[in-house]
Design a protein around this nucleic acid. Structure first.
Lengths: 197, 197, 197, 197
DNA sequence: ACATACGGGACGCCCCGTTTAT
DNA sequence: ATAAACGGGGCGTCCCGTATGT
């Protein structure tokens, strides 16, 4: 009885995982449904029963990436509770990830590039993701007692997206990737917000 | 007189302009050769005589965008000769462009996203473009007598790419786009480099 | 019951029939794949799954015409068992067909004209077809006890091909098509072979 | 001065000769204007000044072939003045030509195959050519005092066209081409017409 | 659930016959 | 006479989403 419900779940997850990896590596347009079907070992009809269209599959993949990102970030800064130090820890983690060998850039930027229409499921999730990032940064900035936490959060978002772009552009093997400058830059922006008057 | 109607602008230029606009609006994969041919009023064979493949056309479009960007930037900061003020002027111009109504993001980021392979003509030009940006920023930082001009230039590049991402993500109609924070953030980073030691 | 509407005739057959008719009417070079696809109501990929190339499709069409020709001929001279009378019956049937309103000539001649290279699939089948005709004529000539059945068969083949050429050249509406002379000419050749020695 | 008028004439002939040879070897559809231009060493505009379209060029080529055929035939049966013997000589010449190594078939049949529409310039000339053949045969048959010269001429035309088809189908290297049977078959048909009553 | 096929459409690259500019 | 341009078409491939047949 149980497998009647649990096995489809596994199929859906396998599709999401496989498709997400392929999309991330090669791009959304470059990966076709047939490739995903072959790589995930499911039938085409199974895929289309779970995701009515490729766009919906993309949306689900990006949504899943959104959740995984937060899980990763929370894990990465776990234990750092003091707000200002947590802000810095975030940028240290981001810089480390962006210069790690398996990072190819930001999938939310990618989906927004490949599907410029704001109504696209993937684009929608990407915007929400960036909004969530800036919200979190603002919350931390406010908790740290910094001036103009909203403006600071936006400045830090610019920095973070610049890091992902650098990862995309220069790759992980670049000798002196600009991404490594992220923690120092964040520190400077935070310090400026601390002494602002 | 004659050229007003009998001498069509060189076909190659018409193709580049039309293709560049279409690619920028809808993406590189989303725009087909036939669309470009139809929109530019050119024969398919004419296009393929000038550009052996779509990838080459993309490369040429991005190269053209690279040149146009520099022309725009030089015009935008014309007359501001003092290095530190010129750095700030650059970020004011970038923020203004990024929040203008016809800006959809950075085509160099886009081509790097849609063609992750570093050997792709478009990707190659995009990387060179970003390198040129950071070189210019470093030159200005050094001329301004700032500390660690190389690190500062990389930090400012992060900022600038973050601005383009914000333009892509939130569009020009967003009430409070993070892109507007670019000049203040750049000022903070420059100030930090000025007082470092 | 169901097959009346839900089971479409095998796509391969529909393609062969449609393509055969179009090729016959307009020529092999003059009919493009897209036209065949549109006329047969089939997807292009379906066509290319059944026939790897246009040349292969042409070969299959000519092969099918070969089979249909024999089926027609056997039906046309059905019941005429005596060899010499059967030979005459063949030429009466051929002359009748060649002067009928829907005859445009011989598709085997046509494919040999449009694809002069002997290795072409269509050309190959055409040669085999003509060889089969002359073989059948020789067999009948020998069974009729005629002299030099091989030579007679070749003479009759010349006659038959001349009939198809006349059909092609003058069309079915010509008042006095040379094709009508085929039975009398065949009779004369057969009579000459009967009295030779 | 002279070359202003004589050189264009030479160009026209060179085009006709080159195009005729190419068309004959590879077919009318298979040979493009560019190929003819390159092979004949004239400018494209020169070609289009002499022949308004490819169809017209084809018509002119076939017309030229028509004249060359008659020149060849008259030369081949030169000196044979007695009508019945001349008829036989015609078929001996035709059989010899059809089995010679450079004969690829009948260009008039070919143009009728590749352009089935009777209004096509090439098709028109081809029909006229065949009509001229049958007229000549009828004239000779009548001069020879044979019965029903019209019917005999048509029978002989069938035979002759069968010879060209055999040449096309089996090529010049076939060990026992049916084309070689033409003289004997013609003799039989003529003999039958001589003894008819 | 797998595998195979299908319809429809777009795409990439190429060639053709024809005209215009240089 | 060279060379480019032009609209149109051709072939072969791919993709998405659906429909069968086990």
């Amino acid at each position: 009885v149980a497998e009647h419900f649990s096995i489809p779940r596994a199929a859906r997850d396998r599709i999401l995982e496989t498709a997400g990896a392929l999309f991330y590596q090669h791009g959304f347009h470059a990966v076709g449904i047939d490739t995903i079907v072959a790589a995930s070992g499911v039938a085409k009809m199974t895929l289309y029963r779970h995701f009515p269209s490729k766009d919906d599959l993309i949306g689900a993949c990006v949504e899943r990436a959104h959740q995984e990102f937060w899980a990763w970030l929370n894990r990465a800064v776990e234990g750092v509770e003091e707000p200002r130090r947590r802000l810095l820890a975030i940028f240290e983690a981001v810089a480390a990830l962006a210069t790690s060998s398996h990072c190819l850039g930001c999938t939310f930027q990618a989906v927004a590039v490949e599907f410029p229409e704001p109504e696209h499921p993937g684009h929608r999730v990407a915007v929400a993701h960036k909004q969530a990032i800036v919200d979190e940064l603002r919350t931390l900035a406010a908790a740290a007692g910094l001036q103009a936490p909203d403006a600071l959060a936006q400045q830090l978002l610019l920095l973070m997206d610049g890091v992902w772009v650098a990862a995309r552009m220069f790759g992980p093997h670049h000798p002196a990737s600009p991404a490594r400058q992220a923690p120092r830059a964040a520190e400077a922006l935070i310090a400026a917000a601390a002494t602002a008057g």
